[in-house]
Design a protein around this nucleic acid. Structure first.
Length: 303
DNA sequence: AGCGCTATCCCGGTTACATCA
DNA sequence: AGTGATGTAACCGGGATAGCG
């Protein structure tokens, strides 16, 4: 469980009507008061006992209670706003939707719920609960103020711990589940936007590389054309110091490139010596350059 | 210590609704 | 007024993780 015990402790305000965070009584006490509430008033339960984690998981009796609680909570409309501060669902670490979602995450369990779950879904989508009136299934649009505060909070930290979630929900008069969902969607939007930016960047990189490739191809063509007229290119300065070994067709490094480094070409005869096919390099240096294999041997002497 | 179960959180994808052009 | 596009709140299914027995 990611929720720290201190955070859970925050959420133990179950039996009071408006306490938020202060309740520090023992878990067993909560469990018993909960049971009373459960039996006497499901509505009270709805208002005050959203939180499953309010029940200590070590208490087997409370485990039973927890499942009973879920049964009640399944009929609750998730879009009903917390009314005038009497609803302390924020007292819970997690909203009823979290509970339901958590339950719904396991398909077998959800299927085991059978009709009850279907009823819950229908209810949550406003299909069948006319008694809720306009509060039933109207999609909530957050006000500008709410959005602004959420945005501000998101700028500070793009994830919320339960404490922050509860505080924010209370501040905005939303359910913690709504805050949670808003942050999830906001993270998704951020990621999508970043992906688009990255995509655009890569596209530009690709265009640049294509252009560079085109330019280099053109240069190669020009150089090849020059190569065909020796009288012309003999007057030019060498465009490069790299030479190619005709036998292995690999670029070889001229001695000047390795002199000064720890690599000293071995004087021992190599299997073959690269010929300098670069006429300019040949003109510049009469000494053969070490073969690539020699360089590697010099760097990594074999036992 | 290892294992299974449970709760919780988060994510990617999707749906449903509100709003706008 | 009707309609398609768009934005987004809410949901779903699943993976990861942690606590507990």
């Amino acid at each position: 469980m990611r929720v720290g015990k201190e955070d859970l402790g925050l959420s133990l305000s179950l039996s009071s009507t408006n306490s938020f965070q202060e309740n520090n009584t023992t878990n067993k006490t909560h469990a018993s008061s909960l049971k009373l509430n459960l039996m006497s008033s499901p509505f009270h339960l709805q208002k005050c006992l959203w939180n499953d984690s309010s029940f200590p998981s070590s208490d087997r009796a409370s485990e039973t209670l927890r499942s009973e609680t879920r049964s009640f909570l399944r009929g609750i409309d998730v879009n009903r706003l917390p009314s005038n501060g009497d609803c302390e669902d924020e007292a819970g670490v997690s909203s009823p939707n979290s509970t339901i979602s958590s339950m719904s995450g396991k398909r077998s369990e959800r299927e085991a719920m059978g009709d009850d779950h279907e009823i819950e879904r229908a209810s949550s989508r406003g299909i069948s609960d006319e008694e809720d009136g306009d509060a039933s299934r109207k999609k909530l649009r957050l006000s500008k103020d709410q959005s602004a505060i959420l945005e501000e909070s998101f700028k500070e930290h793009n994830t919320l711990n339960p404490k922050q979630k509860l505080a924010l929900a209370k501040q905005l008069n939303l359910r913690p589940r709504q805050v949670e969902v808003w942050f999830q969607n906001r993270r998704a939007r951020t990621k999508l936007k970043q992906t688009e930016v990255d995509c655009e960047f890569l596209k530009r990189c690709c265009e640049n590389l294509t252009e560079e490739n085109r330019r280099l191809q053109k240069e190669v063509q020009e150089l090849r054309a020059l190569k065909l007229s020796p009288r012309f290119y003999m007057q030019m300065t060498p465009p490069t110091t790299l030479t190619m070994c005709p036998s292995c067709e690999r670029v070889a490094v001229p001695p000047t490139a390795v002199s000064g480094s720890a690599v000293e070409p071995r004087p021992t005869p190599a299997p073959h010596r690269p010929m300098l096919i670069n006429p300019w390099a040949a003109a510049a240096s009469a000494t053969p350059i070490p073969h690539r294999r020699q360089l590697i041997d010099a760097l990594h002497p074999r036992p």
